[in-house]
Amino acid sequence: MSRTIAVIDDSTTIRSILRKAVMMSDIDAKEVLEADNGLDGLDLIKRTKEKLNLVIMDLKMPKMDGIALLNELKNAGIQSIPILVLSSTADQQIQEKCKNLGATAFLKKPFSHEDFKTVLDRILAR
């Protein structure tokens, strides 16, 4: 099954790492769409929700942070797409908040390709 994945992160470096990690994994990614802030990410998800199989997003982003983005998605009723949240700082409370807002899984930075693949396999097997 070919998959379409959205990567939303303000860091060009992290988007590049994720794009390569997705392409190197065996999930058969057909397309990786990108946005560099939460607001554009929301727009991207709304426009492409019919074909999206996964959203990977940072928590700390300009214009709209990850919590606000999750909130917007919940309010818009977009809750069927698995969402992987990345963060280096988030404590347990923030992680719980993200899960309550619809996040499927959390991945702490720094992460290895192996860490990424493990969490990706877990999400997409659901």
Binding site: S11, T12, T89, D91, K109, P110
Partner: peptide
């Protein structure tokens, strides 16, 4: 420079966590 910025971000965030 973007890579070095992201490095500082991850390093500080992880160290504080």
């Amino acid at each position: 420079e973007d890579a070095l910025r992201e490095f500082a971000n991850i390093l500080a965030g992880r160290a504080l966590a």
